[in-house]
């Protein structure tokens, strides 16, 4: 019984904490973020297992976590607001070449990060060449460059 509650509680806590920590944590990994993820993984493991290292406990936890994940996927399919709150929506950072500084501030990103994505994805040299930049729900940055005719 313990294992199911532990699994559900840790899943819920991680979901809330990571969701509200922002998308930076998910995709824009700096060395500090990597350290954070490693520590969270280690802490979570201890909290999940407690002092029970049996195969039974591990099996129950794995089944519990997968079942919660399946249940949430159904819930997201059934309810659009739930899906929006759990997964988020894309955020426009640059629209028609105009930078949304308010959005950038709120998602804790800088122009350098957009420029980095622009360089990596399209080999662009500066932000003037970016038509749209979008922070996707999964934390990736999508860049749509200005066409040469523009």
């Amino acid at each position: 019984m313990d294992s199911v509650f532990r699994g559900a509680a840790i899943y819920a806590i991680l979901l809330v904490v990571l969701r509200f920590s922002g998308r930076r944590t998910l995709s824009q990994m700096t060395p500090f973020d990597l350290v954070l993820i490693l520590i969270i993984a280690e802490t979570t493991q201890q909290a999940l297992l407690g002092d029970d290292f049996s195969i039974t406990n591990a099996a129950i936890l794995i089944v519990t976590l997968c079942a919660i994940d399946i249940a949430l996927s159904y819930l997201k399919r059934a309810s659009s607001p739930v899906a929006t709150w759990l997964d988020g929506r894309p955020t426009l950072l640059i629209f028609e070449g105009v930078i949304d500084t308010h959005a950038l501030k709120k998602v804790r990103m800088g122009r350098e990060e957009i420029l980095e994505a622009a360089r990596q994805l399209h080999g662009l040299e500066n932000l003037d060449q970016v038509k749209h930049a979008i922070l996707e729900a999964d934390g990736d940055i999508s860049i749509i460059p200005r066409s040469s005719s523009n």
Partner: peptide, 11 residues
């Protein structure tokens, strides 16, 4: 714009 994006600024 021609950009099709499922964003929701209010949300």
């Amino acid at each position: 714009s021609q950009l099709i994006l499922d964003d929701d600024p209010d949300f």
